[in-house]
Amino acid sequence: MRRLLVALALVVWPLAGSAQDRAETLADIRAELTQLGGELSSLRSELMTTGAVARPGGSTMLERMEALELELMRLTGRTEELELRVNRIVADGTNRLGDLEFRVTELEGGDPSALSSPAPLGGDKPAAASPAAPKPQTAVGEQADFDRARAVLGQGDFRTAEGLLAAHAAAWPNGPLTGEVLFLRGEALEGLGETAAAARSYLDSFSSYPDSPRAPEALFRLGRALGRLGQVHEACLTLGEVGVRYSANPAEALAQAERAALACP
């Protein structure tokens, strides 16, 4: 049976974040390629009518065009290199997320063979290639149902709250409240002593909404649940990822305390 290292399944997110911080992004390079291509076309047209006339500073238009072509070749190579790297990261992260799904399904007592292949991380196109998607709007009745479920959870009726939250997630799978709903469902399942199912809900909350306000704590709760299920090694690695991805977030201190309690190396 396969053995999952949870931190390996999560490594793609810090990598993706650091890649976004690089000054030279794929979008920047593509824009520069377009600009250079236009400049080359302009120079070629000018050469056809005027010839290789010397420019101030001793360079000719032909020399300038050759220099631009060399730069164009360099940028094209750089773009291909970055695209290959991004594709490797997406493929690796998708595989590792699938392994995590497999492991959590095992812990829940489900049938891992029934799992479908996970969708590629980031979708079919890079975010820079398409306009920013509008923020989802709260549907009629969505907020009211959420408030009711949260109130029931606050009253300690974990079973009823879990049912309401599960129904909410099914009714509005991509709603603006769904990340919070999945997190609260994890809390309800923990209250019922169903730790494996709670781990699944925390995983769903974090993996589906990694940039939501609840994501740091969902990742911490996932690590803590794994520890309580006896998966200490995986728990330590998962808890360590909280500080890597969400440095200075209050969940980082919680994760460090839990790592100490588990005697993580």
Results as ranks from 00 to 15, higher is better:
E162N: 11
E190C: 04
D211M: 08
R259F: 02
M65D: 12
T238P: 01
S41K: 10
G154A: 02
P112M: 05
F220S: 03
L26Q: 15
A91Q: 13
E217L: 06
V140N: 07
L203I: 00
R88Q: 14
E106K: 02
S205K: 02
P126F: 04
R259N: 02
L43Y: 14
T105A: 02
G191D: 11
P126H: 06
L189I: 01
A144P: 05
V181D: 12
A261K: 03
G38K: 01
D145G: 15
F206Y: 12
D204Q: 07
E217D: 12
A260N: 04
G93I: 03
E83W: 04
A166R: 14
A67T: 13
L177R: 14
E63I: 08
E80N: 09
I89R: 06
E81R: 05
R78C: 07
L182K: 04
R22M: 15
R78N: 11
R88E: 15
E194H: 02
T238I: 00
N174Q: 14
T79N: 11
L4R: 01
L254G: 06
L5K: 09
A161C: 08
G58T: 07
L192E: 09
G122L: 00
E234M: 03
A144M: 06
A171Y: 13
E190N: 08
S208F: 02
R96K: 14
R44C: 12
F158K: 03
R88M: 11
L43W: 11
D21Y: 09
Q137Y: 09
G230V: 08
A9F: 01
P136D: 09
A133C: 05
S130A: 15
L153F: 07
R3N: 10
D211F: 05
I89N: 04
D211P: 00
A27Y: 13
L262H: 01
G154L: 02
R228F: 05
N174T: 12
I89K: 00
P131Q: 10
L237D: 15
P250T: 08
A225L: 00
D147N: 09
G163N: 11
D147R: 01
L8F: 09
G98P: 05
T160D: 09
L153N: 06
A54D: 11
E81F: 09
L226R: 01
A225K: 00
P134R: 08
R96F: 11
A253H: 02
V11N: 13
A27C: 12
G156D: 15
V53D: 13
